[in-house]
Amino acid sequence: MVKRVRVRSLMPPGHVRAPAYLRGKTGVIERSLGAFGNPEQLAYGLPAEKKPLFRVRFTMAELWGDQAERPADTLDAEIYGHWLEEVPDHAP
């Protein structure tokens, strides 16, 4: 089953590994990568909780709309689970 997710559109100051251009964008989980130390804690020298990391695939149409060179081309990025929210399949 394809799992659809949206990158949370929070914009805190400081070090976050979810790129700004992907925030608020919807994609599908391409694969699970396992758990890794939370960079938001590692970056400040703090003990880091392990967080699940996913490779999420977005279409260029989703990212850039009409500006996409070829809408069906894709972009994959690694996003931590706490930056993803599930999108129900029947969502508008």
Partner: peptide, 12 residues
């Protein structure tokens, strides 16, 4: 002595 994340944070 530091993490790669710490370096990235300083760079940003």
């Amino acid at each position: 002595h530091f993490t790669v994340d710490g370096l990235r944070r300083a760079l940003e």
